[in-house]
Amino acid sequence: MDIPYVVHPRPDTGLYNAKLGIWLFLASEVMLFGALFSSYILLRIGAPAGTWPHGLLNIPIGTVNTLVLITSSITVVLAWASLKLNQFDRFKKFQAATLILALMFVGIKSFEYHDKFTHYEVVMMDGNVADGHLVEKTDEHVTLKHVQVFPLGEGNAWDHQGEHKEELRIERSQIKKMENYGPWHNTYLAIYFTLTALHALHVIGGAIVIGYLWGPGSKMWKTDPERFTNRIEVSGLFWHFVDLVWIFLFPVLYLL
């Protein structure tokens, strides 16, 4: 027996199965990201005055990534429109562009993550803090570049306080504590990595589905074009949701 309403909409709801399914799924996704956004708000308003970091993220890079994701949103919707206009070749081109943009987004995000994982805060025995990017780490010493040095408890790196040094070599014997800017470093980075990594997983998941429908899955266009067009619409709805989440993540994490 064939499953009903996989192509044509059910008369009473006006929806085919996959469209109803994706909207129910997106509703659950709203609650997932909503829980994390509310966690962010709670952490932010609960943070003592002056302790919430600002300027830790690179705004031009974040802006470029926002533009990349917005552009991928229009290529997705234009790919769907191309199928509606019976232009399969144009669909292939637009979705290829979407996949390239998705790869760009993940690539840029990886670059940002790498920047944080090589950014170190070193508390020294003399009571000073050296904050900079790792050049070299051996058993004997650690070398940082673009370093700020300030007394422990009297400043922080994101306020650009303290003495600036282009490069600083610190002997291991002089290091009391050393930690990179991973999610364990402070509350802000914990929620930043949680939110952006979950979002990046959605980008990767969406790209895999779009990639399948662009490659082997596109054979369905020859046998059942309407059903294939529905699949592209549903994958597009997910992709737009991913864009929607980033529209709020960008100002919240990078600008505020």
């Binding site: 997705v76 597009g236 737009h240 864009d243 929607l244 529209i247 709020f248 919240v252």
Partner: peptide, 18 residues
């Protein structure tokens, strides 16, 4: 201002692209 602009952008994506 940031949340207002983000909300307008979200409306455009949800309203027209979706």
């Amino acid at each position: 201002v940031a949340m207002f602009i983000a909300s307008v952008k979200a409306f455009l994506v949800a309203g027209f692209f979706m």
